[in-house]
Write a protein that binds this DNA or RNA. Structure first.
Lengths: 263, 263
DNA sequence: CAGTGGTCTAGACCACACT
DNA sequence: GTGTGGTCTAGACCACTGC
């Protein structure tokens, strides 16, 4: 089959691929299916934690074979957008109820496991609406001066203040965010974003440096002046690579380390 | 088909899965095929850069359908052990001739690309045979006191000394390694391991910290005393998760940063 | 038991590379 | 053209979950 497909569930213009002239823009059927499922995820047709239709149902809906739907879902699962559970169904991935509680946190205790230290204790120092500086605006794809929510907090692991981080969130999408909301929420902050703001983080990128903290930072992390810290700048993205959060954090690495697996 | 498979190319005992009692140890056919291909890779039946037999050939050899072989190879490709090239064949992955020259190096210039800075200039300070300390032995799965090769070098990017690293390699496998060999080899050091020692690194793990270098380290990297540096401890593994190299490196992060993508 | 995802097969056809 | 990997289909059966 060499034609493109559209979602019968949509009555408007087809979401098919062939657009302009230059390239034939050949795209395998399963990629098109993947795109359509992605649109439904993005549009919130199925909420995080919910099951999406069975492979047979989707195959019928898109008028393709089950195998083609399967390959599309395989890729979505590989990208952690969806989780397959044999015998039960395929579910929209969520930062809640996930085995790995902190999916994007690569900090590990030098011995033992993160879970041994109990849940991270959050100390919110600040949560206010501010105007985006030039660089924050650039990273979040906003205009300088646009409203952003800024949060500053200290995370303690095993009772020791270990992470000092500033978060910036687009003011539009995160209107009404409060310090209490962040402090009280059980589980990952990214799970709260899903529940309270309908924003689901899908991937992130971190840039890491070694830095010397200033006096204020030393005080907050209770380290001696001159102690080197890990500077971690994280940009988190929703669907379609839209940046939705900037974090600038300092990690103590005296009893923890940043673990990265390379393949 | 619910039985296990063995490689007709081997006349000895089957490599099948069923071993002990407790679990039926059910393993899909394609996993068994994957294991058999893995054994051949490990045994050097096909060398890095060479093509492995076509899917049809492998299907015939293992007496399964092409689709089953395909799924096995899909996983091997996902783990970067082989590379598929449409119209040409499937090739054993290699650290040479790979698009990404430095597969395990996550250091990026703050602006531009690593390639803009030209090839890294290697300055070998030391290359000698020593006895493994307790911690080096533990990491490399040797006994304390076993012979290891130790290398110390400085890598300069764009003319600036940026990485100071010590390498430890099992003395057995890397007998005869010389400073000249490391210095002269064009391309990644991991490519040299393949060519000169038949050792292929398959994955790695890095533990990262922020540290303050001592006077000697400052001198070698030409930084002021007190400059914070990134400490990167990397363990590189061959097939079967056997550790074959330990690197302890210091990265300058004044004009570069460590980039990590999280999914 | 029915429904879900997971495996396996066999065959057809397409896209790409080399010759 | 021939041979390679890549896509798509249709159908059978297996493994797991929950009613």
């Amino acid at each position: 089959m060499s034609q493109n497909i559209s979602d019968p569930a949509e009555n408007a213009a087809s979401a098919a691929v062939l657009t302009a002239q230059p390239a034939p823009a050949f795209s395998p059927l399963y990629q098109q299916i993947k795109g359509l499922i992605l649109q439904s995820l993005q549009a919130g047709e199925w909420k995080p934690g919910e099951a999406i239709p069975s492979e047979m149902d989707l195959a019928a809906r898109f008028r393709v074979s089950q195998g083609t739907v399967r390959k599309a879902i395989d890729e979505l699962a590989a990208e952690n957008l969806v989780v397959r559970r044999q015998g039960k169904g395929t579910f929209v991935a969520t930062h809640s109820e996930q085995q790995v509680q902190y999916r994007f946190l690569r900090l590990m205790p030098d011995s033992g496991d993160l879970d041994d230290e109990g849940p991270a204790q959050r100390n919110i120092l600040e949560c206010r609406r501010v105007r985006a500086s030039a660089d924050v605006a650039r990273i979040l794809a906003l205009r300088a001066g646009d409203a952003v929510m800024q949060v500053r907090r200290v995370l303690s692991l095993g009772g020791v203040p270990t992470i000092l981080e500033d978060l910036w969130l687009p003011g539009q999408a995160f209107k009404g965010l409060t310090a209490a909301q962040i402090a009280q929420y059980q589980g990952p902050t990214y799970a709260m974003y899903e529940v309270d703001f309908g924003v689901r983080m899908v991937r992130a990128q971190e840039d890491i440096r070694a830095v010397t903290p200033d006096a204020a930072q030393c005080a907050l992390l209770q380290v001696a002046p001159g102690t080197p810290l890990l500077s971690v700048e994280r940009i988190a993205f929703t669907y379609n690579d839209v940046p939705m959060e900037l974090r600038r954090a300092l990690y103590r690495t005296d009893s923890h380390h940043y673990r990265n697996n390379l393949n």
